[in-house]
């Protein structure tokens, strides 16, 4: 019962946390570029403004996809905080991700189409990495249950350092930060403008932004599993991880999806196998 309550609480708090993180992200990014940047609450203002706009959409399918994407992200957050199975969570978030691609494919716009294809490449890259991370977690703790992993007596980071690295790479791809901002990027200065999001506007774009906040919370939650023993350790780990994301975002140019499939995926797979082999031997 408490686990379900916890999940419901997370459902309500996750967007707030996600929005705040997005706001902080923008501030720190600006600082690193020696700009002032927007107020920390700017993401909330933006989304509020999007919801205030007149809904205009190309077709119903696109709207449906936006809702499913949000649902997928929200349900996976709920499952995570309710302590459910990692594998179940994995498939639920995959459904959401795939529906984002469907939504983009539902319009004939070439930007949206190319964005969708690139998003598929990104899913193809991070999903295997994610599942390997989950396998590693299960191997180290003996269970796929989030609740069980959470109550593991010692920090998992010590056993799974390489897998954590892989997870953060997957996280960068999932969050579409430079150098992996192919399918859509946080600023529109990109050859396909906003890729998967080009054809979304108004409240539906707001829904997608909301879903994105849920996703941020989810990935940070998964990261938190690696240091679940103390609150301080957990917070430090998350702060360092997110700061590293911002840092990488600001020190690299955007690369191409061919590079991602060639180098990033291979490196990720290699690191995961190394860590898994080490787990089996240890």
């Amino acid at each position: 019962m408490t686990s379900i309550l916890l999940g419901i609480l997370a459902l309500i708090l996750a967007p707030l946390a996600g929005g705040l993180i997005a706001g902080l992200d923008r501030r720190v990014t600006a600082r690193v570029q020696s700009r002032f940047g927007p107020p920390i609450l700017q993401p909330f203002y933006d989304v509020a403004k999007l919801f205030g706009k007149e809904p205009r959409m190309g077709n119903v399918w696109q709207i449906f996809c936006a809702y499913i994407y949000l649902l997928g992200a929200a349900v996976s957050v709920f499952l995570f905080f309710a302590g459910a199975d990692l594998l179940l969570l994995f498939f639920v978030q995959a459904i959401g991700a795939v529906f984002l691609v469907f939504g983009a494919l539902a319009r004939p716009s070439p930007y949206s189409q190319i964005g969708a294809q690139r998003e598929l490449m990104q899913i193809l890259t991070y999903e295997p990495l994610l599942i390997l991370v989950f396998v590693g977690l299960a191997k180290a703790t003996g269970s796929f249950k989030v609740a069980a992993i959470w109550s593991h007596p010692e920090p998992l980071l010590l056993q799974l350092p390489l897998l954590y690295l892989v997870l953060t790479t997957a996280l960068t791809i999932k969050l579409r930060k430079s150098p992996f901002d192919f399918s859509t990027s946080h600023h529109g200065h990109q050859e396909i403008v906003k890729g998967v999001l080009t054809e979304y506007s108004g409240p539906y774009l707001g829904l997608i932004e909301l879903a994105h906040w849920y996703e941020v919370v989810l990935v940070l939650g998964i990261c938190a599993l690696f240091w679940s023993t103390s609150l301080v350790g957990l917070l430090v780990l998350l702060a360092v991880t997110y700061a590293a994301e911002i840092f990488v975002d600001n020190t690299m140019a955007r690369l191409t999806w061919r590079w991602m499939l060639g180098s990033a995926l291979l490196a990720g797979l290699a690191l995961s196998f190394l860590n898994l082999v080490w787990l089996y031997l240890a």
Partner: peptide, 8 residues
């Protein structure tokens, strides 16, 4: 940049 003055 993180520890110097703003350019803007």
């Amino acid at each position: 940049n993180l520890f110097s003055r703003y350019a803007t």
